[in-house]
Each structure stands twice: as C-alpha cells, then as structure tokens.
Write a protein that binds this DNA or RNA. Structure first.
Lengths: 233, 233, 233, 233
DNA sequence: CATGAATGAGTGTTCATTCAT
DNA sequence: CATGAATGAACACTCATTCAT
C-alpha cells in the first residue's frame, strides 16, 4: 500500500499490475454477474453469459469462483454484506439525534445500495430462496441478520435516549425495512411494468416514510398518532 | 362428441365421466399447477411434477394445455383475471359509502385471493417477468389493467361523490395496491424467512392501511394530514 | 413364452410388443453398455456412445437408467450377480463328486461368462475401483461376496464328504478364483497385446488348473504334492 | 537472465540449485506422477495434482514434459524400461545354473520393482491400453518386448545348457510372466479388496511358482510332472 | 381420451495445454 | 527458469414437447 518514496521505479508497475490483476478479473466478473443475476434471476442466468459479458471465457470464471453458487455469494458479499462493518462504524461515530441517524441510514442506503443494481438482490432472493436453500440460508446469515441487527441498534439507541417510545424491536425493524424493500421492488419489477408516467421519487418516498416512522416512534407529545397504534400486528 | 341416439346403456357412465372430466382433469391440473408455480416459480416447476400431482400423465397435460406457458395463463385466468367480471358486478351493485366500498374490496380480496395460494402469483410474476416477456404482457393485460381499472373506478366514485379529494388516480391506484402487494409478498416470502415470532395479522394490517388511505384521501376537515402530503410523487 | 394355442389372436401382438418393449430398449442399452464398458472402462465410456450404439438418443438412456453408475450396476446385475440364484440352485441339485462339481463350475463359468463380454467386468472393476468407491462396494456386495460364498460351499462340500483335505477356505476360494481371473484378464488385455501366435486354449488351461487344484485339495494318498504345500501363504 | 561476468558471490548457490534442479524437479515430478498414475490410473490423474504434489506449478510440469503422455512415458522409462540394460548386463555376468538365474530374476524383480509402486504400472496399462493406443504401443516396445526378450534369453540358456528341456519359448515366457503379473495385480487391486486376513506372502508365492516352473522346465529325471504337461496350450 | 416412450438442445463444471510475464 | 492466468472442447444429466398406439 504505502510504497517507500524512493527506489521504487520498477515496482510500481508490477505492484499496480498485480493488485489490478487480483482485482480486475473478479471485479468485472462480479459486475457482470450482478447485472445478470438482477436482470434474470439466479437460475435463469447462464454462466457462459456472465463470462462473456466480463470478456473472459467460461473456464476463467471457474478459475475465480468454484461454482455458480459461490459466484452469487461473492456478488452478495461484494455489494451488501461486506459493507456492514463500515456502516456499523459510521453508526458508532454518528453524532446527532437518532431521528437524524435514521434519516441518514435510509438515504445513505439509497445512495449506496438502493439506487444501484445491488438493490435487485432482495427481489432475486425472494424469488429463488425456495429453490436454492443454501443461498437462502447464506443470505439470512450474511445480509438479513446483520441488517436487522443494525436497524435494531438504531431503534434501541432512540429508545434509550428517550427519543423513541418503547417498542417491540422485532416489529420496529420490519417497519423500517418495509419501505426500503418496496423501493427496491419498485425499481426492479413494479416500476418497470407500469409506464414511465408512474414515477416514484425515491427521496420523497423515503422522506414520507421516515416522517411516518419517526412520528410513530416518537414519544407522544400532545396527541397519539392513531393510525400507527395498530400498525403492525 | 357424437353420442348415439339410443342404446346408450353403457354410455351414461362414460358420459358422466366425460362431462365431469372436462372439468375435473383441467381442474386438478390447474390446482396442482398453481401450487407448484407458487412454490417454485414458473421456470423451476416441472410439467412432469404438475401432471404427477394431478394424477395424470405428462401427455395428458399437453392434451389440455398446448404448452407450459398456456398452462400458466390458464392458472392466472382461473384464479384472478376470470373473476374481475364478478368483482366489477359487485362494485356496480354496491350500495354504500366509497369508504365502505374500499374496505369491502380490500377484505374481500384478502378472503378470496390474498389468503389463498393465488396470492403467490404476483410474487411469481415479479420474478419471472423479465425472462418470459409473453407471460409478462399477458399478466399486464389480464390482471394489472383490469385490476387497476377496478381500483380506479372506486377512487373515481369517491371523488365524484365528494368523499375523496381530487387526486392523480394513477398514484392513487398504487397507494391502494401497495399494501395488498406487501401482504402477498409477506405471505409467500418474507414471512417464511423470519421466525414465527414475527406474525403479521392481515386483517389488522389491512385495517391500518385502509385507515391511512382513507384519511389521506378524505377531504381535509379540521387539519391536513402532513405526512401524506408528499406521500407519492 | 409358451402362448396358449387358441383365442389369443389379438393379445399375442400386444403382449409381445409389451414384453419386448419393456425388455427391448433396456436390453439393447445393456448390451451396448457392456460392450463399451468392457472395451474402454467405466470412466472413458461416454453415455452418448452407449445410446448411439443402442440406436436411441441420450435422453432415452436416462429414461431407463437414472445415472451412468446405475447403468453400470444394471449391466453387472444382468450379466453376473443376477445369475447366482440359478447357479446356487444347480449346485444344490448337483449329483456327483465334488471333484466333478468343481469341474462343472469352472467350465460352466467359462461357457456362460468367461467366454462372453461379461468376463471383461472384473478387469474393469480392478481398474476403476479406486476412482468409483460406490461401484467398488456394489461389486463387492453383489459379485464378490456371493461368488466367493458359492465357491466356498463347493469346497466345504468336498471337505465334508472327505474328498478334500481340511483347508483354510479363504485361501481355497482364492486358489479357485485365480485361474478364472487370469483367463478373463488374458482374454481382455494380455491376450490382445501379444500377437495371435500366443493362443491360450481356455479349456485346456482350466483343465490343467483344475487338475492341480483337485490334486492339491485331495486327501493325500501315497505322497503329498510338494509344490502346493506352501502354495499360498 | 543476464549474469554479471564477475562478482558471482550469490550465484554459486543458484548454480548449485540449478544443477541439482535439472535432476531434482523432474525427479520429484516423476515420483509424484508414478504415485498418482498407479493410484488413480492415467486418465483419472490430474496434471495439476502431479505438479502440486511435486511442489511446482502446472506450467513447470509442461516445461519438463511436453504432454501428459510424455510424462507417463518418462515414468515408465525411469522405473522399468530404463533398467533393462542393467538387468541384461547382470544376466550376462551371471555365473551359475539357469535355475538359480531364474530364481535370481524373479526375486530381484520383486525387490526392485514388484515391491515398489512401479508394480502398479502393468495393472494401469492393462486398463488404459485400449483408450491410449500410443501408450500401449510404447509400452509394448519399451517394456514387454525387452522384458520378454530377457526372459527368453534365460530360458534359451537353460535349454542350451541342457538344464531345461526343449520348449516353445513364447509360451515359456508367459509361464514365467504369469506369477509376476499376478503378484502385481494382487498388490494393487485384489489384495486391497479382500480384508487383511488374506495375506499373500510374495516370497513364498514366488518360491512356489518357481518350484513349479523349474520342475516343469527341468528335464524329466525320475517321473514327469503330469499337471504341467498341458499347462499352457 | 390417455398414455408414456422418445427426443435433442442446453446447462454447470472439468482439465490438458498455452503463453505472456 | 518458473509461473499462473486463460482457454475451449467435452461430458453427464435435464426437460418441454411430440406422437404412435
């Protein structure tokens, strides 16, 4: 990483090549795989096609990923589960109200995941989970559990600080998750099948949901929010 | 086809079986197909398995449905699109406030579709639409268009009667659709992957959503509902 | 087989077709598979080629045999293990000296197995056992165990009747097996690589081996046979 | 690449390594290849695995051996055919009876080949010969022909000296070969599939066979050995 | 009307061999 | 000299669809 300032006239090239090599091929393969998995689903995606789109042969793909399933796992790690550490860090260092933190989480998620191809993964998992149990359990362990835990941490922080009223955190987590999921589904399925006239502005949508959520979570001041009283079961 | 005019002492039995068969065989096939399509998706469902579950041979299946795609279409017609006529009739004859009508629609949908296997079809379509364009366009024509039209009729009735404030009906339709979709997805995907501790009571959920919707659609009386002001773009 | 002489004017055809159908396809496949497995070994044999030689498509092969391994097992059952019942029966009914019985066994084996393609199976197993453990254990259970048991029965009969001297039956079995094995190997490997000038007359060879064996097994009369005293450990 | 003309204080090490390498690398590769070929057969052995076991990369293997077949030939030369010159020399210099010479040959073979991994090669060739005709013809030329010639020389010497009676040398050679082959097969196939209770002591077995052979070859003194009269065709 | 035998194009995966570095 | 990334032909197995009976 940190190369000594002198005498490195031959190394940079080699180093650069190495580090690019080790990253470049898998990187292109992962990008191609993400695109195709999101577009066609896991089962319907052909490994030949992934390889071809990445500009390599099918054999090369299996040089980097021992199977189609492992390729998929790598895609998920690269795009989602590998980022939880960073996100947890950000939350640890976050300095502000939990309301702001929740807003930050949602918009940040949209910026880094929701608005990218990666948001197609949840839809994909929803469809294929039944047919590929190992992928399902992988997804639960590497995405849903840490994701839910992260949201729960935020909610607990809010309750601890008195910003949010006490709640059943399991439900709370799903209340936060629902709009993200809806947005992802809209982007990759629903939105594509109703004409372009039905635009859904993600920022506005998230803002509205956030508003409802935090008003629902907030300590009641003058009057309770009746419509969330029985929001989830 | 050509039944002899007399001497049918052996035929009655056969006739009875026939006329029953004309319904029975396809019926069992459609039921088996619905189950399997919902459980495994369109592509992953094997026609052998459908036939086997229906107790007939694979050849017989192709006797009634010329292809797997046509079988799927028949399943959709049988369970969803074939019922719009009846539903439209009910709406025509409905005597009451539009608020009640909307409630009736949602709960009725839950009773007759949402709580049955048929609610798996939207999830299924969401996943497979990209890979089977013909099915997608069929679904749009036979399900989404009449479904949306039906909801739009309700909304227009409410606006016309002064119960609901004027709105962009395209958005309105999706606001009504969203909770139904969420419930269907929960039932067939999300709900199955979070433990049984996260129960979602469909009636309560629909009631809450209905409450929000109608309050949002209602004419403002004392104060506007700010959180829906920018609900959808 | 033996059809009643009257009133079977429509059935014979159908019966014949049926019984041929159920037997014909698998039969041709089994014959083709035996030939190719013996010629090229299990791993090197291509299922396409088996199907092609049997005059059917690859798909048809998998209609009858769920996998290449099961095809191989069926070949072994058809040609070897399925015949032990009959052979055991013949031994039960055999009326004569054990010396004659042993001669009958060896020559009978040559007539029905050794001289046919089936004698290639032992060579084949010897080569592939390491790479296909499941086939190896199948072969042990379905061929070697009953085969050894059959030989042991003969030897025990000889000892019981006083014809043979007491012996360690485990060794005895291998002493009988060795010439059969050698003959099979010769036929399928060794014999094919030395020119046609080195003919090995199976009947003469078996007769000679039998002679040695039975003299070795026989109760010593005037003088022991020294060369077998330490023949096998 | 470009070695400086002087100042080679670092090179000796490298030179030493090189000159050792010229032997070491191929040597390790040949050893690894022998093990794996014998264990799994020619076709089932992966060149990656050979290279890995020898501690080099796959590319390096192809640096020393232009193909898998050439690697196999080198293994055979290293372990068998390369030694015929030496063996022939020993026979030339042998001073003693032909009976002793034959005993020496068999036991020597067991010591230097039969008891080592190299004895797996005949089994291997027996299996793969059909699928790799070039290897088969190589083996015939480089192993079987000189091997048979060597045995024939011994037999001719015995006949010439009057120790052995006149014979058809082609058959005689196979009579000598058979027990060696049987021992090799037992070691690498048969012996491994019958439990450890069936031990075959190679020295005893060879001694017994040798006894039979030489008594069979010997000039009849007091009485003929009837059981070998028609031993081989 | 109902069957089930037959098909063949298509899929994920393997592996000997090449070659730029 | 040594590497390891890249290839592509090959192989076992699947499955929607057809059709003679």
């Amino acid at each position: 990483m940190t190369t000594p300032p002198s005498k490195n006239f031959t190394l940079p090239d080699q180093q650069a090549r190495r580090s690019r090599r080790k990253e470049a091929r898998p990187g292109e393969l992962l990008a191609a795989a993400l695109d195709l998995f999101v577009e066609k689903g896991f089962a319907a995606t052909r490994v030949d096609e992934v390889a071809q789109r990445a500009g390599v042969s099918k054999g090369t793909l299996f040089l980097y990923f021992p199977s189609k399933e492992e390729l998929f796992k790598a895609v998920v790690r690269e795009n989602i589960s590998g980022r939880f550490a960073e996100w947890n860090d950000e939350i640890d260092r976050f300095d502000g109200s939990t309301h702001d933190m929740l807003r930050y989480c949602l918009f940040n998620w949209w910026e880094r995941v929701g608005s990218t191809q990666a948001s197609g993964i949840p839809k994909l998992m929803m469809s294929e989970a039944q047919n590929f149990p190992e992928l399902a359990s992988f997804y639960r362990q590497e995405v849903m559990q840490p994701g839910n835990a992260l949201i729960e941490r935020v909610l607990r922080r809010g309750v601890a600080s008195g910003e949010f009223r006490p709640m059943d955190f399991t439900y709370g987590v799903y209340l936060v998750l629902a709009p993200m999921l809806f947005l992802a589904l809209w982007k990759h399925s629903l939105g594509t099948c109703c004409g372009d006239d039905v635009q859904l502005d993600p920022h506005k949508y998230l803002a509205a949901q956030l508003d409802m959520l935090t008003h629902g979570f907030n300590q009641p001041k003058n009057h309770p929010n009746p419509s969330l009283e029985h929001a989830l079961p």
